[in-house]
Every structure is written in C-alpha cells, then in structure tokens.
Design a protein around this nucleic acid. Structure first.
Length: 281
DNA sequence: ACTATTTCCTGGATGC
DNA sequence: TGCATCCAGGAAATAG
C-alpha cells in the first residue's frame, strides 16, 4: 500500500541517511526472491557504488549510483558507464530500513546492503510483492507521468479515447504514476465523481476538478507523511497521519463528512472502492 | 488497442 | 483454543 505520498516520504528520509555512503557488499536472500533483475547483476552493480541521490518516480524508489572507477584504462567517453540506478518497488508490504549492523535481522529480510559508514540498508517484505532491480544505463523510466508535475492539458489527454471506469484509469501506472487505491478514492470524492463513471462520460470541467483534486490530495498527504494503515512507517519508523484525513477510504457505512449519507463500498477491477452516493455522480 | 480477470504472497481478522 | 477461510492490494500475465 505505499503509494506516492508514502514512497515520497520514505525516499526523503532515506536520502538524509545514505547519500554519499558507499555500498561495500550486498547480500541477497534465498530462492523465491523478489527480484526483477538477476541477483548477480544487482550485486555487481551495487557493490562499490556510491549513493549520489535517492528520489521517487511513481511508486518506485530510485537510488542514483556512481560506480567505482576501474583501475584499467578507459575510453574517453565512459562517463555514462559510471552511473547506474538501484530501483526498489515496495509493493504492498515492502520496507527499507537503515539499521545498525548488530540489529536483529527480522523475518522476511530479502536484501542487506553493507555501507561504508557501518550502517546497513535492509529490504524487508513479508508479502513479497516488492521488486528490486537495477538500471545499468542510469536512465530508468517508470512510464506514465508524475501527477504533481503534469499540466492540465496533458492530464486531460491521458484519458482521451478511454471507456473504462475512471477508477481503473487512475490506477493505471502507464498513464498516471503513483496513485494507488487510497488516493484514487480520495481524489474522486473531492472531485465529486463516482469511481465507476466511464471515462468518456466525464466532462472537461469535471476532469479539471479531478486534476486539482489529485494534486491537492497528494500534496496534503505528503505534508502529513503519508497514510499509516496496516503497518506502514517511514524510513525513520515514524507513522504518517493522512489516514486521519481520509473522507471515504475505509469508511464503508460511516456517514459522509459532507452530507451524512453512508459511504458505499463496491469492487472495481478487484479493488475495493469507496464513495458517497450522494456527493459523487 | 483496450479492458477485465487472474495470479502472486503472508499476516491478521473473522467464523465455527 | 484451534483450525479453516477470507481479505488486503500493485503490477504482470492472461484472456477476451
């Protein structure tokens, strides 16, 4: 469930702790590993690299790496070869923890990076929906556009020619990246649009409201450190507080905060979707 | 070219 | 108390 605001919070927290540090060695867990790249390639790319930056792209955490200079002679234009990226997708239950070496290695730890500072960066993921990969080219592209960067015109264009429910389109990472189930529901509530509404029946004005709602919800959620439901905590082990601001998500049967009508829950594309039948049309 | 459905996975909650 | 069943969800794969 980490979505854009939670991933942003985690990436910021990690940045303050590991930027400038050097990855000395990498341990990757046993057989069914949550890896997208081959284990050997991940280890080879990470080991010896310096962490230059940590940022978020959609729901991915991206570590920009500077690979060690080889002692061998290199061609003139090898600048590109010195950069690479480590990409972490937390899935549902993934966590990245900065730990002391002597800290207990908890169950479901799938990767441990030993850093030069003496700290360890550990990837823990009970449900194993998370994924680790490397981009040796250093130009990873998550696809889709950033909701907080895209302009209204481009946002509107994303939905052109689509017929499915607006909720499904919002969750489609190839269109908009970073919005997940919670923020899709919260955005649709603020925009006054039912999750099942077909994209091609939504007016230009309503799309503009949706655009503003998505940005508003994500911005507020980032400011509050994300939503802590189930066991989400950020890189410092701190909980977020946006769950206290949820107006529909997880509020099935509770009165709408605007009109007191009980919030409904339906299933769209296998996802529970919450909305107010009176405020949203 | 889209859209809908299924699959992966485990811990916590619920039911009998 | 104990055991079975259900549910949560992102994204990839599969099917239509």
């Amino acid at each position: 469930m980490p979505e854009l605001p939670e991933v942003e919070t985690i990436a910021r927290g990690l940045a303050t702790r590991v930027i400038g540090d050097v990855i000395e060695s990498v341990w990757l867990g046993q057989k069914p590993e949550p890896l997208k790249s081959p284990a050997a390639e991940i280890a080879r790319t990470l080991e010896g690299s310096r962490i230059r930056a940590v940022h978020r792209m959609g729901k991915h955490i991206v570590f920009d790496l500077e690979r060690p200079k080889t002692s061998k002679r290199r061609k003139a234009e090898t600048d590109d070869n010195s950069s690479a990226q480590w990409i972490v997708h937390l899935g549902m239950s993934g966590r990245l923890q900065v730990s002391e070496t002597n800290a207990e290695v908890v169950k479901h730890t799938h990767a441990i990076l030993k850093l030069k500072s003496g700290l360890e960066l550990r990837f823990v993921d009970p449900r194993r929906f998370g994924r680790l990969s490397v981009a040796t080219t250093g130009n990873f592209d998550a696809g889709g556009v950033e909701p907080l960067e895209v302009e209204l015109e481009k946002f509107t264009a994303l939905f052109r020619g689509r017929k499915g429910p607006i909720k499904s389109a919002l969750l489609n990472q190839k269109l908009l990246r970073g919005v997940g189930n919670i923020y899709a529901d919260e955005s649709l509530f603020r925009a006054g649009i039912r999750p099942r509404r077909r994209v091609n029946t939504i007016s230009r004005e309503q799309l503009r409201r949706l655009y503003l709602a998505v940005r508003e919800v994500l911005t507020e959620a980032i400011a509050l450190g994300g939503s802590s439901i189930s066991d989400y905590v950020d890189a410092d082990g701190e909980e977020g507080f946006f769950q206290l601001k949820h107006r529909v998500y997880g509020r099935e049967g509770d009165p709408c905060l605007v009109c007191k009508t009980p919030i409904k829950r339906i299933v769209i594309a296998g996802r529970s979707s919450h909305y107010c039948p009176k405020c949203q049309r």
